[in-house]
Simulated assay, not measured.
Amino acid sequence: MPTSQFLDSALDVAKQAAAAAAKVIARHYRAGFAVEIKADQTPVTIADREAEAAIKRVLKTAFPEHAFYGEEEGREGEGDFLWLIDPIDGTRSFVRGYPMFSTQIALMYRGELVLGVSSASEFCETAWARRGGGAWFSDARLNGAPIRIAQTAEFGAATAISFGNVKTLSRGPGWNALAGLIQRCGRTRGYGDFYHYHLLARGSLDLVIESDVNILDIAALAVIVREAGGTFTDLGGRELTLDTSSVLAGTPTLHAQALELGLA
């Protein structure tokens, strides 16, 4: 496992890379740009491509020997260290002109996630973490404050759950289990993208459920939630891999109880 000193240095570089992406994004946000539709039917813009290039320039300068996996440019290189990059997670929001999108940068070492930065530059908040270093948060009021998940231990009137895209879940046997879970909770929300994971890590939500994601969407957020004291797996309770496509994240106790319901 990389040393704490290395991870601190790498985290600083990742934050610099996210800041470089933010400058690109600010230049294009709510400006005129073409929108292309990729083979997977998701949109892409010049801002996505330029922001990914800006991130990689910063990372490659510091770590030229590392491998990279970007949303727009795919895999590049081999080795123990793999940077996972989603320059604009939430391009549909970006295209529609509202700020519920973010830049996601994570580092994986031999298949294990070790650091992450989630920068929602137009939303004016950023969260970051590295293995063993806790989770941290900045917004217009806070500048680098530590964050922790809630201590919620039972489903009840005070429990808050948020859902992202659950289209695949709605077509399977887990849908009825989800309905039962909703009946036991006090509040349901649908924040989506980066935002409900930031809220979870800050103690404002208790559980997040998604069935249609890819690892680039969630890698950085998984490190942040875990370092804030939460549990973050796929819907079946499995560890995250490059092929992960669903999320069950929450306080350890609620995560364990939700897992028993058979949502996967």
Score class of each variant (00 low, 15 high):
residue 224 I to G: 07
residue 224 I to W: 04
residue 224 I to R: 06
residue 224 I to Y: 02
residue 225 V to N: 00
residue 225 V to T: 11
residue 225 V to R: 01
residue 225 V to H: 00
residue 226 R to K: 09
residue 227 E to K: 10
residue 227 E to D: 13
residue 227 E to I: 05
residue 227 E to A: 11
residue 228 A to R: 09
residue 228 A to E: 08
residue 229 G to Y: 15
residue 229 G to R: 05
residue 229 G to N: 00
residue 229 G to W: 12
residue 230 G to C: 11
residue 230 G to K: 09
residue 230 G to V: 08
residue 230 G to S: 11
residue 230 G to I: 12
residue 231 T to R: 14
residue 231 T to S: 14
residue 232 F to S: 10
residue 233 T to I: 07
residue 233 T to G: 10
residue 233 T to Q: 02
residue 234 D to F: 05
residue 234 D to M: 11
residue 234 D to A: 09
residue 235 L to R: 00
residue 235 L to C: 07
residue 235 L to T: 00
residue 235 L to Y: 08
residue 236 G to L: 02
residue 236 G to D: 02
residue 236 G to C: 12
residue 236 G to T: 06
residue 237 G to L: 02
residue 237 G to S: 05
residue 237 G to Q: 08
residue 237 G to T: 03
residue 237 G to F: 06
residue 238 R to C: 01
residue 238 R to S: 09
residue 238 R to Y: 01
residue 238 R to N: 07
residue 239 E to R: 11
residue 239 E to P: 00
residue 240 L to E: 02
residue 240 L to D: 00
residue 241 T to W: 00
residue 241 T to Q: 01
residue 241 T to K: 01
residue 241 T to E: 03
residue 242 L to T: 10
residue 242 L to V: 10
residue 242 L to A: 04
residue 242 L to E: 10
residue 243 D to P: 02
residue 243 D to K: 03
residue 243 D to F: 06
residue 243 D to T: 13
residue 244 T to N: 04
residue 244 T to A: 10
residue 244 T to I: 03
residue 245 S to Q: 15
residue 245 S to I: 13
residue 246 S to W: 04
residue 246 S to E: 09
residue 246 S to D: 06
residue 246 S to H: 12
residue 247 V to M: 08
residue 247 V to L: 04
residue 247 V to S: 04
residue 247 V to I: 15
residue 247 V to D: 03
residue 248 L to Y: 08
residue 248 L to H: 03
residue 248 L to P: 08
residue 251 T to C: 12
residue 251 T to N: 02
residue 252 P to L: 12
residue 253 T to F: 13
residue 253 T to N: 15
residue 253 T to S: 15
residue 254 L to C: 06
residue 254 L to W: 09
residue 255 H to C: 10
residue 256 A to G: 15
residue 256 A to I: 08
residue 257 Q to Y: 11
residue 257 Q to T: 09
residue 257 Q to R: 15
residue 257 Q to A: 14
residue 258 A to N: 12
residue 258 A to R: 13
residue 258 A to D: 07
residue 258 A to M: 00
residue 258 A to F: 06
